[in-house]
Nucleic acid binder design. Structure first.
Lengths: 210, 210, 210, 210
DNA sequence: CATGAATGAGCTTTCATTCAT
DNA sequence: AATGAATGAAAGCTCATTCAT
């Protein structure tokens, strides 16, 4: 009879069920978009893969675009947390070490959920909200990275510019690396070389990689 | 009636006309794809923009996918020629100068025909053949660039790997730069900074840019 | 807490609550149908507007059609009472006076609840039962009016036919008047002219209107 | 080869075929709307009944609403011509004769295409364009009728008002008569009585009906 | 060779209705 | 009794592709 009783961390039954459904839909959407891209990822297929009816899908999302937006927000939020944690815990790491872990982490994002990243960076085909999500995300990363660079007192004329370019380079190379498949370079070699590229950009004379 | 290829000799009137039609269709396709992407670019719109009937379009291309493939081949062929010319004529340029002109040229490709490049790098929305086109194109560039690097006798452990990464970095950053619009960095500053990045990667201590 | 209904006897508390719910649903239905018509008035919206869950709505009505039928019955019952009262109390009125009040009353029905009347006369979009309701209602009116006419000893060959035509004319013109909005004729002028039409039909030489 | 050659009254093959298709769709739409009303008359059913594919239907009409609008325009144009012809040819008829033929004609419109008239007068469920069509049509009729009444030099204070009411009354009664079916009054008796109503309204002492 | 009317599978989305809680 | 998440048939509409002319 008591309409809400947040006894523990559990959600109320109905809410918990809803949340599960929403998550299932987002997971399914990621898989479906991965298989054939955004345009060919139909709402019916997403619903089917999520194990819910098409009606239920539209109970939680007003339209198809809303699904990508939610998917992007969920994923980028997770990634943001992960990266900020990485940067916060790396105050004592060498610059090369930091860069290497940064590259590894970003590559990990793309290999873990290539569907999402393909969609997010294919841009201009889906709602502007997603675009905005990505820009905010990248800005956050760049700011945090710039702060770290400044703390290291490197001789860099413009830390913001450098951080910006590092974020863009890492993201776009990771994106490509995943799109191209693993045929060209294996992942370790790829990460090594990108780290070297970034380390030299920042002026580290002899980046000790690995 | 002699079905000779354009390479040499004369063409029969009808074939010449065909060639004109094909070109018109490809030009129209580039414009239409640019407006809303590959999926939203309908064959009827392409035909209309090209000034031919939809029936004629299918006379020259067996299906929609064949249009993108042809478009990609035509464009990448042009770009390949332009880049190879650049590399051949730059034997006496400084490394920094070469890199700068390389970056400028690639950025130019993307800004000149963003439609095409968006499609080419959006992957997995269009036929795999286009993917193959791009890979061949990038390999050609990487080989030519590696040869150039070797001729310069730099202290680079693996010229092929370096050339490969340079090509990938330049292409992917140029792609992003165009997708994001010019809001973040103006084009000159962007080219400057990417050139600096690549120059340092190759070990140039103080790249005098511009 | 004594939940007895005014008319007779007592009902169980639960039934009184039921009655309130039913009325709330019918009121909500009238409002929702008014906004966009019968087809666009969804059961979910009706339930929401009534402040009950969709499940409760289906507890009281087996399906959507049953709601319109009940709505029609309730409204026409009210109107029937009002009209019969009017006719009963008008034995001493002039014919013209009676007609004027009849027209005014019918126009009032339509302006007061246009939603309902639009639905009732839109026919064939909703269940045949509502049609039957309307026919019964009009027959009742026509009979009562015919009785009145006969009591007045007018020289009318067929009082039933005349009463029938008067009812139909008044209803259908009132319906149209409301559908068209008040742009064409203002309401008073409209009532005046329709009264004149009916008065002359019944042979009144100089109907003194108003 | 000459792109247009209006030799005779014939249309070019392609155009003729188009015209036939358009007419078939409109005819089918009238039938389908008649069967279940506007909302339940689906575009797929219309296409099927017309013997064309759904794609063809959308080749000629941008959306469902456009079909009703076209249907209304086509039908009202036909009716307008017929009524104006009637009024022009009736200068020497008696007033009662004119009214009778007017009523007969309008009733004929409704019995001949009840589907259309049900839709046209159910209003407010379909695009405003149809509404505008009907208003224009009725205005035309009222003007023409008012002119006729003025030419007859009757003692009518406001010929425009009278004509307006006659048009509205005839249209709305004919509409109802058809909706109610033929159960109540047979058509001849109905026309007789409506004519009498209108004749008396206009002051004809002894309307010789029939 | 050129044309463009015709096709129909398949897309996104709505909504009356059910049933486990 | 009351709830509201879930259902899924069916709607309006698009677009790659064909084929009679």
């Amino acid at each position: 009879m008591s309409p809400s009783r947040p006894t523990s961390a559990r959600k109320r039954p109905s809410q918990a069920r809803s949340q599960v459904t929403v998550e299932a839909i987002l997971d399914a959407a990621a898989q479906v978009f991965e298989a054939r891209g955004y345009a060919a990822g139909t709402t019916n297929r997403i619903a089917a893969r999520a194990g819910v009816s098409i009606g239920s899908l539209y109970e939680y999302f007003p339209n198809k675009d809303a699904i990508v937006v939610a998917l992007a927000e969920r994923e980028l939020e997770r990634e943001r947390e992960e990266i900020l944690e990485l940067l916060q815990g790396s105050a004592r790491d060498s610059l090369a070490g930091l860069l290497r872990r940064f590259v590894e982490t970003v590559v990990g994002f793309h290999t873990r959920s290539p569907a999402l990243h393909r969609i997010l960076f294919e841009e201009a085909q889906h709602p502007p909200e997603t675009h905005a999500c990505v820009l905010r995300f990248e800005e956050t990363l760049a700011h945090a990275l710039a702060d770290d660079l400044r703390r290291r007192r490197l001789r860099i004329p413009d830390a913001d510019l450098a951080a910006h370019l590092i974020v863009q380079t890492t993201e776009s190379l990771a994106h490509r690396f995943v799109l191209r498949g693993i045929h060209e370079l294996d992942q370790v070699a790829f990460v090594d070389e990108v780290t070297r590229l970034l380390a030299r950009y920042l002026g580290a004379r002899r980046p000790s990689l690995g």
